[in-house]
């Protein structure tokens, strides 16, 4: 297992901070123009068209999710959830998707996300997500960019309650 460079680790840490702090415009700047944002249903899926997923967004659909999150009338986010993402150390992996989709580097990190839900009392308000995020990155040029992003949740095949944040 080959660890990713510090540059990549810090970049992914920064991505998590931007999402935690709901700095969505800055987050969008980390994504390539033709980004995929993918949350498959099961780990065996090889590409986003290989059976149903939870999310398979290209930039246009992802933008709609972001605009909805920023909308004060967004029903399940009044007030917005507060989130804390804990990212592991990223390491290089051979790409397991059928196409690299423009990425020259593929890294994966285990992560945990704790979401404090609105509208719930203290005992049941902290909800956890865990799994891995696999990133297809382009590292050439001036800046790191996310070409695709695949989130494998350890409970993605179970009956989850509604999720209205970005994971």
């Amino acid at each position: 297992m080959r660890p990713a460079s510090d540059d990549i680790a810090v970049f992914l840490q920064w991505e998590a901070v931007l999402l935690d702090e709901r700095r969505f415009d800055e987050w969008l700047d980390l994504l390539a123009e033709d980004v995929w944002y993918w949350i498959p249903l099961v780990p065996e899926q090889r590409n986003p068209l290989d059976g149903p997923s939870h999310v398979y967004d290209t930039r246009d659909a992802l933008l709609a999710r972001v605009y909805r999150l920023k909308d004060p009338q967004n029903l399940p986010q009044q007030p917005p959830s507060r989130c804390c993402r804990i990212m592991g150390r990223p390491f290089h992996v051979a790409t397991e998707t059928d196409a690299k989709h423009g990425a020259d580097t593929v890294v994966r990190t285990p992560f945990q996300l704790i979401e404090s839900l609105p509208h719930h009392d203290a005992e049941e308000s902290n909800r956890q997500f865990a799994g891995t995020i696999t990133y297809g990155l382009s590292t050439g040029g001036n800046a790191l960019r996310i070409r695709w992003r695949r989130v494998d949740l350890i409970n993605s095949h179970k009956g989850l309650h509604g999720v209205s944040i970005l994971i």
């Binding site: 909805r68 009956g159 999720v163 209205s164």
Partner: peptide, 8 residues
């Protein structure tokens, strides 16, 4: 999907 921006 539970992630649906409509169903949520």
């Amino acid at each position: 999907s539970p992630f649906s921006p409509v169903a949520t």
